[in-house]
Design a protein around this nucleic acid. Structure first.
Length: 390
RNA sequence: GGGGGGAUGUCCGAGUGGCUAAAGGAGACGGGCUGUAAACCCGUUGGCUUACGCCUACGCAGGUUCGAAUCCUGCUCCCCCCA
């Protein structure tokens, strides 16, 4: 092995939790050719989120060294639903929904990846196979082997259901590796089993087994559970700048070191005040995905809203309903999409402001004059200005 | 084929005839505090109603009862075990 292959490997192994089997990556690099580095993403949600970008950034590093990324949109595997890290079965997605999601993935992935060095495939290209081909694939692993997987083992022990289809998932993912002849595959640590099983599948098909790199899982905005759409704790790369910035400011302080390590190129400074390090992170990441201008605007709006507590001027406008006085619960319910009961509750809790001043439950009916041209605020973040229709 | 268990509010999960719009937790939301949409504290969390209150709700359809999430019958769906 050459010295340069070793130092390149060291660079590529930064942040990597495990590189399996030992020395496999170095050996591949030593071949001196552009490697095919695989990442599979199932289009189960419409957006890529920051959690995905941890792996995407690592792929980018490979690209910058001249290697080729093979991005697989798992349109077929999405129909199975990867059970990794889940304790219950996933609902199958409708084909139309999957197609819709798949379309947006490529564009979003290219916010991080270099399109020039990326091959994109849908695994329906090869997984739409004949039954005898599927039989051949199914023969490459045993039930005992598949039950080795941690979450399968737990569910089996707990007598929870495991469908045969789920059991098949790792094999399908492994077949992807055969089809694209991947040299290296990346994934989160929850993917370790699948990534390794792919080696066996490749071997069974007479293809050189891939090296496997696993990366840490990024926690979501709750700072606890892995970032995912279904947990509702995700930050999408295509979200409006304001959302990205605000959501990042909502991430618990305790998760900051990990966010720095996995998403930024510079280390977390424990000396810096929590707010400042979070702010810097939010600024940088928002700029990365939404652009510098949008990030700057998002930050200043955030400051006005949450630091200065100033009512913004540029808010959505709407007409006042006919009738005077105006029944506030109805107006709030219709404008903000909450129920009248909730509007009433918010009013009673001091969560409704008119022109910056809190209203209370006595203000259930308000003269149209008081509302005309003024801004109604619901909670901290929802605003609307009303005008009397002419 | 046989036996057993289950379906409760956004989610998880108590509840076996009235005190149950339904414990508890999570989440979400509001307020307070704050250089954060962090942490922490308090509160709210089915719909309609200024309010009294009314309506809807515990898989679906019937039934028993003064009264049912709780009992009975049928149905649908799900899970486990044995074969």
């Amino acid at each position: 092995m050459t010295a340069s292959a070793t130092s390149t490997a060291d660079f590529l192994l930064r942040n990597v939790v495990e590189a399996l089997p030992a020395g496999a990556l170095e050996a591949k690099l030593a071949e001196g050719r552009p490697l095919r580095v695989k990442l599979g993403i199932d289009p189960t949600a419409s957006d890529l989120h920051l959690g995905h970008t941890v792996v995407l950034r690592k792929l980018r590093e490979f690209q910058d060294l001249g290697h080729v990324v093979v991005l697989i949109i798992g349109d077929y595997t999405a129909r199975v639903g990867d059970p990794s890290g889940r304790s219950d079965q996933r609902p199958m997605l409708a084909a139309g929904e999957i197609d819709l999601n798949a379309r947006t993935y490529r564009d979003q992935a290219f916010r991080v990846l270099d399109p020039e060095r990326t091959e994109v495939h849908h695994n329906g290209e090869w997984l739409d196979m004949r039954v005898d081909a599927l039989f051949a694939l199914a023969r490459t692993a045993t039930v005992a082997q598949l039950l080795e997987r941690d979450d399968f083992a737990k569910r089996y022990a707990a007598r929870e259901p495991i469908s045969v289809l789920e059991l098949l998932y790792p094999l399908l993912q492994g077949y992807d590796s055969v089809a694209v002849r991947s040299d290296v595959e990346l994934g989160g640590t929850d993917q370790t089993f699948n990534l390794l099983l792919a080696r066996d599948v490749q071997h069974a098909y007479g293809v050189a087994p891939q090296a496997v790199l696993t990366l840490p899982i990024l926690p979501g905005t709750d700072g606890l559970r892995r970032m995912s759409k279904s947990a509702g704790n995700y930050i999408g790369v295509a979200e409006p700048a304001e959302e990205v910035f605000g959501k990042l400011m909502r991430v618990p302080d305790a998760a900051m070191p990990l966010y720095y390590e996995l998403l930024l190129d510079r280390p977390f400074d424990p000396e810096l005040a929590a707010v400042e390090s979070k702010r810097a992170l939010a600024r940088e990441l928002t700029a990365r995905f939404a652009g510098v201008d949008a990030a700057t605007a998002a930050e200043s709006r955030f400051n006005r809203l949450h630091v200065d507590r100033v009512t913004p001027e540029d808010v959505e406008e709407g007409p006042l309903p006919p009738g005077d006085p105006v029944h506030l619960p109805s107006l709030i319910a219709d404008s903000f999409g909450v129920s009248r009961g909730e509007a009433r509750r918010l009013l009673a809790q001091g969560g409704v402001r008119l022109a910056g001043k809190p209203l209370d439950i006595a203000d259930i009916d308000v003269p149209a004059d008081r509302l005309d041209g003024e801004i109604l605020q619901l909670g901290k973040r929802r605003f609307r200005r009303f005008h009397r229709p002419r």
